[in-house]
Design a binder for these strands. Structure first.
Lengths: 337, 337
DNA sequence: CTGAAAGCGCTTACAG
DNA sequence: CTGAAAGCGCTTACAG
């Protein structure tokens, strides 16, 4: 039923190995032969069996993308960039939502390995036990991490300068005159968030303006998480005049919580996000936030992965960092006295 | 370097075919043998080569998901539902963003076919030429479409009752007292949108209230598309008091355009969406919209796909339709006189 | 430049 | 219940 190399071989009167070479554009093939093979392949509607190809070559043209959750708009953008780059290179992308669950993450990784993927893009290896991480390194399949590099790790990374982003945010709010600031961040495991918090803290504490950002509240990095964290914050720390949410989605929840209390943004409380999602410019008030690469991160990560995959043996890990920029919109202003 | 069935066979003193049967839990294996094989497999860290398995079995445990764009939150939800269902069944999901581009769609389909996927989930087959569609049917791989069934098509579908959704929206706005309504919809090819517009029109025209919804403006089904369409509408049809956007994302853009004109929602103009995205309850004003299944659509589509894949030969197509429900929030009210 | 053969790592009738 | 063998559809040294 399905058409194989052998069918082309018979139809064009050459050996199957010659057909293979012609199709793969290998050296040492007479151009007439190649032309004939290509023509009959097209004529009889040949479609290569990628499974057989992968088995023979020892590697498939597939990439794995393991992220927390595709529903987080940040990852959605990253995924789109990754998929576009993969498609452009003739690879396809397997989507894996780990929910940052160690068990799922591990299962995904082994599943990808078993498929002999050409490379793996991952959110983070936090959650993978040391033994799984070693296993992963043993398999000698290129891995690019999408979070900040950890010292001693052998994995490459493509990421954003989140520390700088946090620093910009902190500097901006302090300049606006805020003295009592709060940070809403995600769970501890997400080192990314920690970096932006560190940057923010540094800006606030080193400003010499007497501003303080003692309040750090942790919640899920979702709009619901932001909402809950903000409610807690408003109840316990009424003097806070500016809130830095660790990402825009959390900021959306923060704004909702503030309005529910009968307060307004930015009149009563300033709110800043991080990520600059498309929607952040659309909601009201338009959100002041930190612009960072998302699509480009996914794209660059795939390109790096493919480059690593091209190389013979394991190489030194590479680290790519994208810059950030503050996007001033309407959700922040000086505190009212 | 990699561990194969043969290694297990040697290590446990049985033939490779016995190892295969033990691992696959086939009938007619002595339980002691199985136990021993399983134990040594685990001990030496065996990982099956899915490529070889797929080749031998003639099918891989992979599913393809071809959608317009993962960045559209509607598809994001569908994709997550699909991925969860696939993961639960031990399959993985290849993500394909077609942008509704005929060429890309075609390339994706063939790419999936070449990988011998167990099934394909697709946005729509519009864009595929008749010959590609026939080709697809020939391959005998189950396909589930995520849009309304077309008569004469042999593909199964899992979808939402968008006509009813449009009807609910129209009925609601007319009851509120609106006489001059507008619809903002997407490009013509997206039959889904057409159905919801038809339902809306029917409700308005059959209301007996003298309401009219003549204005239909087409734009991209993105927030930008909604923004542009609304600007045009506001300029040319100042009497319109209610706008039905074909999806929530467009509605976000509509609201932005209205505020930019110095008007307010719902004070001056009511706005309704369709989809009930998570963000629709978070923005201000919270959006009145039509709730429809998204995650569940993806999930059900994968389950149907897997069911079809289980069956021997081609079956009659199945059609699953999810119901809808109006979610009343704050973006609509009676028109001011 | 091309053919013949072995091999990639599994599965699955076929014997026994 | 288990072994031996053929086969899935390619690729790739090895000869010539």
């Amino acid at each position: 039923m399905t058409i194989t190399l052998d069918d082309i071989a018979k139809a064009s009167g050459v050996h199957v190995s010659t057909v293979s070479r012609a199709l793969n554009n290998a050296y040492g093939i007479h151009s007439d032969t190649r032309a004939k093979v290509l023509a009959t392949a097209k004529e009889i509607g040949y479609r290569p069996n990628r499974l057989a190809q992968g088995l023979a070559r020892g590697r498939s043209r597939t990439l794995g993308l393991v992220i927390t959750d595709i529903r987080n708009p940040y990852w959605t953008e990253v995924a789109r960039g990754a998929e576009d780059a993969a498609f452009a290179a003739g690879y396809d992308l397997v989507l894996c939502n780990s929910d940052l669950d160690a068990g799922k993450q591990t299962r995904y990784v082994y599943s990808l390995l078993e498929k002999r993927v050409a490379g793996i893009l991952m959110n983070a290896v936090t959650g993978l036990t040391r033994s799984v991480q070693e296993d992963l390194a043993q398999w000698n399949v290129p891995v690019v991490l999408l979070n900040a590099p950890r010292k001693g790790s052998s994995f490459s990374t493509v990421t954003t300068d989140t520390f700088e982003g946090g620093f910009l945010a902190g500097t901006y709010l302090v300049r606006l005159g805020h003295k009592s600031l709060a940070v809403l961040t995600g769970r501890v495991e997400r080192s990314n968030l920690t970096d932006r918090v560190k940057g923010f803290m540094k800006a606030v504490n080193s400003s010499g303006e007497g501003a303080v950002a003692t309040v750090v509240i942790r919640g899920a990095h979702t709009s619901e998480g932001g909402y809950e964290a903000a409610k807690k914050l408003l109840a316990n720390h009424p003097k806070v005049t500016a809130i830095f949410a660790a990402n825009d989605v959390m900021a959306f929840g923060v704004i909702r919580a503030i309005y529910e209390q009968g307060l307004k943004v930015p009149e009563n409380i300033s709110v800043m996000g991080f990520d600059n999602l498309e929607l952040s410019g659309i909601i009201r008030p338009p959100l002041t936030t930190i612009q960072c690469a998302k699509y480009e991160v996914g794209q660059a990560a795939v390109e790096l992965l493919l480059k690593l995959a091209q190389q013979k043996d394991a190489q030194l890990p590479e680290h790519l960092v994208f810059g950030v920029r503050l996007v001033e919109r309407e959700s922040c202003r000086p505190p009212c006295k």
